[in-house]
Write a protein that binds this DNA or RNA. Structure first.
Lengths: 341, 341
DNA sequence: TTGTACGCGTTATCAA
DNA sequence: TTGATAACGCGTACAA
């Protein structure tokens, strides 16, 4: 680990000169010494000590990606293809901009914020934040923050959010089911907050626009914890006969359900139609292939990271960025219009 | 961002004392001042500046996780459930030990090493390293390294590797197919290096032990690039009639193939048996559910991280750590023994 | 064009 | 038990 000081000594010049060359301030240096230093640098394979650099400049060149895991879903979180795709997009963007990414997974907001301030992280990308977090975070942390898929009202006052028009996507696919002649349509999710709530609302709105009434029994709650999931699926499969279609809040749940139905000899789409939301690998590779709402998760990660980078560069960015969705029609929806007669 | 210096000033004492309290060196401090400092610390919510600390101690408390992506697979890499599960295991272990994780994805070894030495990373976990990398890395980097799933001969001289007995796993499942009456068994992969080679060898060995000869035509090469995959799958599906079973090098490929076969009306397991390797979500949720070799990827991540942590603590660790595999028999293999007559 | 000297926040050494 | 002070490596204002 050679230092600037050492280089300067060996070259018989000052650290300033060496430093200037390193930073490309060639105007300040004579051609002669410039070349001498550059050659030497290449030879010894100089690598700056980031700690010293950061300390001197009070920067860190680190962008934190904090995934706030819901305690009850932790194990599933990182296995969800959604998360890995997101990480991929963020990492790539950050790296290309010369920043570094620190990944942090936790269910404790306080712990996340402590971590972030210790490292003097230049900016923060938050995923999975809830309402109360927004308040706490905005008090402590004065640097740029970009949220992903957050519906926190408090948060949105202070941070940019990158998300989808979840309501619209959900509306569209529910509407598609209705157009295909479905009337008894359920909605499946494990909670009614944030993104899930928005998607539920879109679904409800589509029903309402078609003069179909929503009852509480139309909402099917899945319990994703490992100990409960099988029991939960069993219950759900029994309810299936009451409906002709189920709108699942995610591809993961849709495909999980698809498998459970297949195990019980319930045919998709003949006995029941299933749709998802996300359009990930799971639904793509399943057979019958899943009809779903497409979102580009990698782009979400890229957008979040590049928005943050813009803010770091002093640019203004909109408070809300909504990425588009579109329907992907595959094979899990039955056309009831002809079958009806 | 309050500093030790500032605290010392406000409390009318020296930075040394404050620092001592922070580090729990209570023996060095009188009860009186101890309490005074502790109270003050709690009040002002002191967070240490890691850069300064690292600079002073020449440590970083960072563990780097470098995923070396093969250029031709980059897009798939991060979407592969394998990778996200691995990250999850590593991150959790590192965080619980009070370290931080820096994630780095790149196909350029030099770039990775530069990054790692800039940050003075205390230890490194490498995934996806090839032979020549091993040499280069071991020259530059003198701190602990743990590799995951590496078969680099050079690397193994210098680093601990955490992996599987891939040969054995592959042998077992091939052997299972043979026991079920299969003789015409193909092996599908996209390369013949490292893990893939080991699995290929296990497969060959099982064939050989059963006096079944291996010909070059038994090796089916899949081309996973997005532009080629469909064409590649088409070709593969045509070859399928020459075999009764296909051993796929991963669940991802197995399920991809499963979907392609289903699209062409080729029945699994009636027309052809398919097995995978990994036992991830993809195979679990597919129907028919995939028969495969199980490995616990999260444990792999945890093991890699905790082995590195041990090395950091000065403990000796074995050079090779092989995690167990076991067969998971599900529904993609046909029993040919009765059908044969 | 080059060099000196100081500050960044922390820890460590040694003296008081 | 406490406090000066040096050191870590780098950047930079200012002086030469």
């Amino acid at each position: 680990m050679i230092t600037i000081k050492e280089i300067a000594k060996q070259l018989n010049m000052s650290t300033t000169t060496v430093s200037n060359v390193i930073h490309g301030k060639t105007g300040e240096v004579s051609d002669d010494t410039l070349k001498k230093v550059q050659d030497f640098l290449a030879k010894v394979d100089y690598v700056p000590n980031i700690n010293a650099r950061n300390l001197a400049q009070n920067k860190s060149k680190i962008i934190g990606l904090a995934l706030k895991a819901r305690a009850d879903k932790y194990d599933n979180l990182i296995m969800d293809p959604f998360v890995s795709e997101l990480i991929g997009g963020v990492e790539e963007t950050i790296r290309n901009a010369g920043y570094f990414m620190m990944l942090y997974i936790s269910s404790d907001t306080v712990e996340i914020m402590r971590h972030v301030s210790t490292w003097n992280v230049d900016g923060l990308i938050l995923f999975g934040m809830l309402d109360d977090d927004g308040i706490r975070v905005s008090e402590k942390y004065k640097k740029p923050i970009v949220c992903i898929d957050t519906y926190s009202i408090e948060g949105l006052k202070h941070f940019t959010n990158v998300g989808l028009n979840d309501e619209q996507g959900s509306y569209d696919i529910t509407n598609y089911l209705i157009k295909m002649g479905h009337k008894k349509i359920a909605f499946l999710s494990d909670n009614t907050n944030g993104v899930d709530l928005a998607r539920l609302n879109g679904y409800k709105m589509a029903l309402s626009d078609a003069k179909i009434s929503f009852r509480q029994s139309n909402f099917i709650k899945i319990r994703p914890r490992e100990e409960e999931i099988q029991e939960s699926l069993r219950e759900i499969c029994e309810k299936v006969k009451d409906f002709t279609a189920i709108v699942c809040v995610s591809d993961l749940y849709a495909v999980t359900l698809l498998a459970a139905l297949a195990d019980r000899g319930i045919n998709v789409p003949d006995d029941i139609s299933i749709v998802g939301f996300d359009d990930n690998m799971l639904g793509k590779l399943h057979r019958p292939a899943l009809t779903t709402v497409h979102q580009d998760i990698k782009t979400k990660g890229i957008t979040a990271a590049s928005t943050l980078l813009k803010q770091l560069a002093g640019e203004k960015t909109p408070n809300q960025i909504q990425l588009p969705t579109h329907l992907v029609l595959r094979d899990t929806v039955k056309d009831l219009r002809s079958a009806a007669k």
